[in-house]
């Protein structure tokens, strides 16, 4: 298993003192660089900050922004902001989960799709919105999800 990856070491290098305060910024930086927090990355961060893995995992799962699986070839974001909520985003999310058979934060087994729940993505006029690989889909309904996602299958990002 690769442990001492260069990018992670670089990030940790910026936080030479083991401290709890550094945890969130370090997690954010590693996720930014890697797209997700791998098991190895969490353990490495723990050793550096002298924090138990259970604590880091606990803190990271407290916030929605962190994911523990590598993103899929297509990244699906479902907006759960207020406007989208009012227009039925809960049912949209259920539909996406059903079609992909994953929960938010997870990646499909074939690596094709990953799912993320986001707060308002600034397109409230188009609510409810989902965003795949940065492309917005406006006024989606649960019924449309299958077709939208199918159109990405096999497509590279």
């Amino acid at each position: 298993m690769v442990t001492a990856e260069k990018d992670i070491e670089e990030i940790l290098g910026k936080y030479p003192n083991a401290s709890r305060d550094a945890l969130i910024p370090v997690l954010q930086a590693v996720q930014e660089a890697r797209g997700f927090l791998s098991r190895e990355a969490v353990l490495r961060i723990g050793r550096h900050l002298k924090l138990p893995a259970s604590k880091i995992y606990g803190v990271a799962t407290f916030y929605n922004q962190f994911r523990f699986q590598a993103p899929g070839r297509n990244h699906v974001q479902v907006c759960r902001g207020t406007a989208c909520h009012v227009k039925g985003s809960a049912a949209v999310l259920e539909s996406v989960k059903r079609v992909l058979k994953v929960n938010p934060g997870e990646t499909t087994k074939d690596g094709e799709f990953s799912l993320e729940v986001v707060a308002c993505i600034g397109a409230c006029g188009l609510a409810p919105v989902i965003c795949v690989n940065g492309e917005f889909h406006a006024s989606v309904t649960p019924q449309k999800i299958q077709d939208i996602l199918d159109s990405y299958r096999g497509k590279a990002r």
Binding site: P52, S54, K55, Y57, G58, T61, F62
Partner: peptide, 9 residues
């Protein structure tokens, strides 16, 4: 030991 902690919220 810290084997366990609160996970999620």
């Amino acid at each position: 030991v810290s084997a366990i902690d609160f996970i999620g919220r």
